[in-house]
Design a protein around this nucleic acid. Structure first.
Lengths: 100, 100
DNA sequence: TTAGTATTTAGATAGTTGTCTAAATATATT
DNA sequence: AATATATTTAGACAACTATCTAAATACTAA
């Protein structure tokens, strides 16, 4: 879980995830979308893979990357415990004001 | 939004959020739960505040910290765009296997 | 086999982060 | 006013991170 938060703590990596929402892309195609060197993007892809937010398959000389939504589901579950929806007990507390 | 991911990218800070799920606590009470110096915890609280994940109110010599679930709601929304539920189109793709 | 393309690995570097101790600030109590 | 308690600020330092260039690896095509 630590790896997931680490992976998401970077705008470029979050942008990569958004790119892959539409379709799978090769490392090179992903790199084209950014003003960073290919090794830099490769490194970001590696961190996303370590967090299991991406999977990759090699096809010939290309490596295709895909989103893996499984981890997002887990993260979602973690997050839900903090939402107002999930903590109805807290609503009155945060709504109440004391003193003027 | 960047600040939120940054704030969540630390186990201690995530633990602080979980602590505050139950009840509001003072900086000192929060610090008691960890084996770090008070300045270190104060710094973590500051980052959580910058991300607007916490609010604080000073009462006399104490500073009470509370969860702010609003930002979590936004984050939740960001995350939802990646879940399998939200991307039905992708399900067949990830389920399909090619070659053996 | 040689040359070209796609991607990753290695190593370097500047900037960021988490932690500490010491000191400062703010409030409460005597 | 002096002392004690709660918290934050300041400054230092080791560890980690994002980036780069150069080189290595893997595959394709001639």
């Amino acid at each position: 879980m630590n790896n997931v938060f680490k992976a998401l703590n970077d705008k470029t990596r979050r942008d990569i995830l958004e790119l892959l929402k539409k379709e799978d892309l090769t490392a090179g195609q992903i790199a084209e979308h950014f003003n960073f060197s290919k090794p830099t993007i490769s490194h970001h892809l590696d961190l996303l893979k370590q967090a299991e937010l991406l999977t990759s398959i090699k096809k010939g000389q290309f490596v295709f990357y895909s989103l893996n939504t499984t981890v997002m589901d887990e993260l979602l579950k973690w997050m839900l415990q903090f939402t107002a929806e999930a903590l109805p007990v807290m609503k009155p507390k945060t709504a109440r004001y004391e003193g003027k």
